[in-house]
Structure formats: C-alpha cells, structure tokens
C-alpha cells in the first residue's frame, strides 16, 4: 500500500477522463454515423471506462500478477457466452 497507489492526483485525472469519454459517447449519437461504427465506438468507450475503473479506482493495476490473472481471465467466459448467444440468435432464428 504505497502512497502512490492511492494518490489523489491520479483519482482526479481518472475521474476527468471518465466524464470526458462519457460525454464523448453521448455526442456521437446524433452525428448519424453508420450503425456498426456507432456501436463499435460506444462499446470501445464502455470498455475504456470499465478498464479505467478496474485499473485505477479498484487499483487492480497495482496488484500482483497472479491476482490480476485470476480476476480477469474468468471474464473471457462472459464474452464467450455473449458471442455464443448472439451467434445462435442471428444465424438460426432469422
């Protein structure tokens, strides 16, 4: 628990970033981008926000590698489930 990990400066920086990319996610909607590009942009923004929260607010970035892996690797299963269901949904029922 070094002081640097819980530094106020870093938290303020992360907070400002979070707010900035949240606003970016909003103003992109009325721009009339093609659907897939808009969705890709929105999902990337969500992943960036999630990454910032997990890495800095939950300071997983500063934990031991074994902990980082034991938290992040199981999440692949969620992605696998989503991909499987969306694939199933778009190929068999339509």
């Amino acid at each position: 628990m070094s002081k640097q990990e819980h530094s106020k400066k870093v938290y303020i920086k992360v907070w400002i970033w979070l707010l900035a990319i949240t606003i970016a996610g909003f103003i992109v909607s009325p721009l009339g981008l093609p659907g897939w590009l808009h969705n890709l942009f929105i999902v990337i923004i969500a992943l960036m926000k999630g990454g910032l929260i997990v890495a800095y607010f939950m300071h997983l970035k500063f934990e031991r590698l074994s902990l980082i892996y034991s938290i992040l690797l199981p999440l692949i299963l969620i992605v696998a489930l989503a991909v499987a269901l969306l694939y199933e949904g778009t190929t068999r029922f339509l």
Binding site: I71, P74, L75, L77, I78, L81, A82, L85, L86, E88, G89, T90, F93
Partner: peptide, 22 residues
C-alpha cells in the same frame, strides 16, 4: 465475489442480447 457477480450480470446482458437480436 465480484467475479461471480460479474458472471450474473454478464448472463443478464448476454440473455438481453439474445432477446434483442431474435
């Protein structure tokens, strides 16, 4: 606990995705 809870919400959102595309 957070990982297990992430699975719960992940399942919710994946099911929502399936409902939506079908």
């Amino acid at each position: 606990f957070i990982v297990s809870d992430a699975f719960t919400f992940g399942a919710f959102l994946a099911a929502y995705g399936l409902f939506r595309v079908t």
